[in-house]
């Protein structure tokens, strides 16, 4: 701290001193915050051990990995796997499907829990509010296998409840699950059904943090319901929304493997094949470790690029950003 006064006076030595003071500054800063570091240490060790060390395994994307030669002795092939992937006829199909599903998610699935929380927050009757809340969060506890099963029970052509209902009403049955036009929308609807209620938890926790006095003061000032929502409630959760939005953008290449895998069938495969199902087929089912790692790596790189961009834009517009 006292070095700050020192280096302003001697301009010639400035560069040198700054460097030294930086060093000393780092050391004293570290020392000052030692307990803070101790607090974060278990987490840091965790990330090193379970994330960064295993990352070295990504090298196999540039090799022909063979388990019995090990990572080091396997044949080095450079970008061969990437070339094979990009020159694959299906690459554009996979890209199109992945992006379409992600964008639909971003458009409908992402804002839904926010709207739901705002609406729930407006309910005056606390019993009703709690009942609804307790109902909508339930589907989150179902794994995709269960959800897929329920979807078949509801929508299948021969015995789906919805189709039975259509029949009773004298309408023709609809093959919801084999229609490639509505497949993406069906996935989005599934995701909304499963996760919307759960998504509200985090927003409602943040909304609960709003000082009730603020809202009362606004009412006294004559602010209407929507203005209060806009000016008081929304800003309270803006930070969280931003973080989630940036992360969502970064995961645009991920489409939730299990959901797509369980819902796909021959009639819709043209619109349902995504990077994740492709990685599973080539990696787990066909044992092409290196190739599937290369595809995964490509996905991650795109994700990083998108997140950096989103973060930059967020900051540009005066928001917090993630890092």
């Amino acid at each position: 701290m006292n070095t700050k006064d020192g280096n302003a006076s001697v301009p010639i030595l400035e560069a040198h001193t700054t460097k030294r003071s930086l060093h000393r500054g780092v050391w004293s800063d570290l020392k000052r915050d030692k307990y803070l570091y101790v607090l974060g240490l278990p987490g840091i060790i965790y990330f090193l051990l379970f994330k960064y060390i295993p990352f070295s395994g990504l090298i196999i994307a540039f090799e022909n990995y063979s388990p019995y030669l090990g990572i080091l002795k396997s044949q080095w092939v450079g970008f061969e796997h990437f070339q094979r992937f990009f020159s694959n006829d299906d690459f554009y199909l996979l890209l199109r499907n992945t992006l379409a599903i992600s964008l639909l998610n971003l458009l409908f699935f992402f804002p839904f829990p926010i709207i739901l929380s705002l609406l729930l927050n407006e309910v005056r009757n606390s019993v009703y509010k709690r009942v609804i809340q307790s109902i909508v969060y339930i589907p989150h506890f179902f794994s995709w296998v269960i959800i897929a099963g329920l979807t078949y029970l509801m929508l299948s052509q021969s015995e789906g409840l919805v189709n039975e209902l259509l029949e009773v009403l004298g309408m023709a049955k609809i093959g919801f699950l084999t229609n490639s036009n509505s497949f993406w929308m069906m996935l989005t609807a599934q995701s909304m059904w499963k996760e919307a209620g759960w998504g509200t938890i985090i927003f409602l926790a943040a909304i609960a943090g709003v000082d009730p006095q603020l809202s009362e003061a606004a009412t006294v000032d004559g602010a209407g319901r929507f203005r209060k929502m806009w000016h008081i409630t929304l800003p309270a959760i803006r930070n969280i929304i931003m973080i989630l939005l940036i992360l969502q953008l970064g995961s645009i290449m991920d489409t939730g493997f299990e959901q797509v895998y369980l819902m796909t069938n021959g009639a819709v495969s043209e619109v349902s094949d995504v990077f994740d199902t492709y990685v599973y087929r080539s990696g787990i089912q066909q044992g092409q470790f290196s190739y599937s790692t290369a595809v995964g790596l490509f996905k991650s790189v795109v994700g990083v690029a998108l997140i950096c961009m989103a973060n930059f834009l967020a900051k540009r517009f005066g928001q917090e950003g993630v890092f």
Binding site: S156, Q157, S158, L177, G266
Partner: peptide
């Protein structure tokens, strides 16, 4: 045969 043969599973 089953109208939804595209999506049927063993159990059904």
């Amino acid at each position: 045969i089953s109208p939804d043969l595209a999506i049927l599973k063993l159990n059904q």
